[in-house]
């Protein structure tokens, strides 16, 4: 992609991301009390991440079977409260194993 056009995208993206972090840290010193705002902010991280993950994850490997196996392994590992690194690593290994079976054994 063209660098000039990219720089405009980059400036907008970095600017928004930074201001979202910076303004509340600098401006708000008191605790937020509004129950609706607090509740909305509580749910937002999880709804964002889950909407990005499903169905996106099923297309992440180019093969829906290996992606599904990676997804299922990640969910199981997370249910057992494994760390971020462990969940991601186990999921990758699951995909790798499935891809190896599909490509070289089946």
């Amino acid at each position: 992609m063209d660098n000039t056009k990219f720089c405009i995208y980059l400036a907008v993206m970095a600017g928004v991301t930074y201001l979202v972090r910076m303004i509340p840290l600098v401006a708000i010193k008191e605790k937020i009390k509004n129950k609706f705002v607090l509740s909305f902010l509580h749910y937002i991280p999880y709804t964002v991440l889950s909407a990005m993950t499903v169905p996106g994850v099923f297309y992440a490997t180019g093969n829906m079977l290996s992606a599904c196996i990676g997804f299922v392994i990640a969910v199981i590992a997370a249910l057992f409260n494994r760390s971020l690194v462990q969940v991601a690593a186990l999921s990758c290994l699951g995909v790798l194993a499935t891809e190896l079976v599909i490509n070289y054994i089946l």
Partner: peptide, 20 residues
């Protein structure tokens, strides 16, 4: 095959944040 496996890493991290 390695790129495919790494493709799920970022989703694995998301899942690890949401599921617990």
């Amino acid at each position: 095959i390695i790129s495919a496996a790494l493709g799920v890493a970022i989703y694995g991290m998301f899942i690890a944040i949401v599921v617990p």
